[in-house]
Write a protein that binds this DNA or RNA. Structure first.
Lengths: 111, 111
DNA sequence: CTTCAGGTACGATTCAAGTCGTACCTGAAA
DNA sequence: TTTCAGGTACGACTTGAATCGTACCTGAAG
């Protein structure tokens, strides 16, 4: 019933390079921006982000975000939850999440 | 005599994706960290960063940093200067430069 | 049990990025 | 002028990342 939390790095072990690499991708940045915008930090389903990519690729992106220490993944077997590691991120890299709000969401180049 | 400033994006046009992509590379992050640490924002020579890469690759990295809007490049013909665009960066992405200080310099994995 | 949707594992493909070799340009100094 | 160090341009190589196809796993609902 209660999903098990997939492992990520400890709060003190967050690597700035890995974080920047994770946020360099448009889709991953979109996910994290959506998570950071919700101040209640609700757990969300993986398919609630409207990513225009296949589910295999989504799996890849969520894994990158988790291994960078930005999100927790909760495995329920046949579905998965995602939660922002806001406290850990703010502790190690204060102000990082606020930067994501400085970018207008869905800023994909037209044409 | 007075070098000419190579063009980069306007302050309001700084793109977060380009910035994260630029800072995802270890060498470029090292350069920007060194620049951000100097609170006097002195202009520095391109070969004052002790980058363990060829000069062609250095040219490439400085170009990426400039096109991301993070630095100004001043061309003197047979040598080049680099200056951090601190005001523009702080205006558009406040707190970003402070994040670089949270990472210990020269943190290359041993062994 | 079967069915079904969500997710993963593995491999293959495609593309972007980091790197360097060769050649060339630039300005200063001899 | 020549020489020299710093830098660029172009091309080529190599690695890593993003993407998807196929097959398989998981738990819930019939």
């Amino acid at each position: 019933m209660a999903g098990k939390n997939l492992v990520g790095p400890e709060a003190d072990a967050l690597d700035l390079g890995a974080v920047f690499r994770a946020l360099a991708d448009e889709h991953r940045r979109s996910v994290l921006t959506q998570l950071a915008t919700d101040r209640d930090d609700n757990e969300r389903g993986c398919n609630s982000f409207d990513l225009p990519i296949s589910k295999q690729t989504q799996t890849h992106h969520f894994r990158v975000l988790r291994e960078a220490g930005l999100i927790d993944e909760i495995d329920y077997g046949n579905r998965k939850g995602v939660r922002l590691r806001r406290a850990d991120i703010e502790k190690r890299f204060p102000g990082l999440l606020a930067l994501l709000g400085a970018e207008p969401p869905g800023d994909t180049a037209p044409g």
